[in-house]
Amino acid sequence: MKRILITGANRGLGLELTRQYLERGDQVFAASRQPDAATELQELQAQYPDHLFPVTLDVTDEASINAAHAAVRAKTDGLEILINNAGIYPGASADEPTNQRLGQLTGQGAIHVMQTNALGPILVSQQFLDLLQNGVKARILSLSSGLGSLTWKSSGDPYHYSASKAALNMYMRSLAAEVGHYGIISVLVDPGWVRTGMGGSGATLPPSDSARGIIRIADQLHTEENGSFLTWQGQPVPW
């Protein structure tokens, strides 16, 4: 049984990852900003009361990150897997302002996206490093995007989202260089265009397939892959 922390576990891909890990018997710390309001997460907890532990976590709030660490630490002395899944894409839904196009860009909009998608994951990883060091063959998987690839980038919009994922890539590439000394493997994963609230109904990939691929990557990672950027199918993504 692996001990797993998943951020943004209340919906979409994070919820599907939680479900699949529970189905195979693992212990999941499912983190979200308002777990008490996460209906589907509560249903899973009722089904797996001994394996699912909802955790309150806002990745943009350092006090919340510290409190989440204390809550998880009270339940376990180690983690095998951390999945940095929580993220935002302003404009993903029709009723949400985007501010990611040229002419609409604002500094505050950039800060909000960057704080959630790039700073949040590195601060969470830093805070939970002690538990990962106590885990068995610990892994950190941070969900990036092909839009964060400088090589693949061929459009303007979305400016902030793309920049935040490129920044996340650098943070996690830097992290890999250090945590590798502890035997921890850290990689970035492009989950694909997933049919979720963020990806939209026109997305080509069901969450179940993407989650299954991400879990397979976590299970099969080798030391030489530390610091790599992969698709959900395990193929290399150019930086």
Rank of each mutant, 00 (worst) to 15 (best):
D95G: 03
A110Y: 15
G87R: 04
H112K: 15
N99C: 09
I81Q: 14
L82S: 09
P90V: 10
Q104K: 15
G107F: 13
H69M: 03
H69R: 01
Y89T: 01
A68R: 03
G87W: 01
G91H: 05
A92G: 09
D95N: 15
D58A: 00
E80V: 04
S93G: 01
L82K: 11
L79H: 10
T98W: 11
I81T: 10
A63E: 12
S93C: 01
L57M: 07
I111G: 00
A74N: 12
D77G: 13
L102Y: 11
N85E: 11
H112T: 09
G87P: 07
T76G: 14
L102M: 07
A68I: 00
I111D: 12
N99Y: 15
D58W: 02
Y89E: 04
I88Y: 06
G103T: 02
G107S: 06
V55S: 05
A74L: 07
A67V: 03
R73C: 02
G91K: 08
D77E: 14
N85H: 05
I81K: 05
I83K: 14
I111C: 01
P97K: 08
S93R: 15
Q108M: 04
Q104R: 15
T60V: 02
D58K: 01
D58H: 03
D77T: 11
Q108A: 11
A67C: 09
G78L: 01
G78D: 06
P90C: 06
Y89D: 02
H69D: 02
S93Y: 09
S64R: 07
K75W: 10
T76P: 14
L57A: 07
T60P: 04
E80G: 06
P97F: 11
L105M: 12
T76L: 06
T106E: 14
E96S: 13
A94F: 13
V72R: 00
Y89H: 12
P97Q: 09
E62F: 06
A70G: 00
H112V: 07
T60Y: 02
I65E: 06
A92S: 15
G87N: 02
D58I: 04
E96R: 12
K75C: 09
I88W: 13
L102N: 01
A67W: 00
E80P: 15
L57V: 05
E96H: 11
T98G: 07
D61R: 00
H112N: 12
A70Q: 12
I83M: 10
A110I: 15
E96M: 14
A70V: 00
S64C: 10
G91D: 14
P90K: 10
G109T: 08
V55G: 02
A92D: 06
A74H: 07
D58L: 01
A94Q: 13
D77C: 03
L82D: 08
D77K: 03
A92Q: 06
A110Q: 11
R73F: 03
L79W: 05
P90D: 08
R101A: 09
T106I: 05
V55M: 07
D77Y: 04
G78M: 02
P97N: 12
L79M: 05
I83T: 07
E62A: 08
L79N: 10
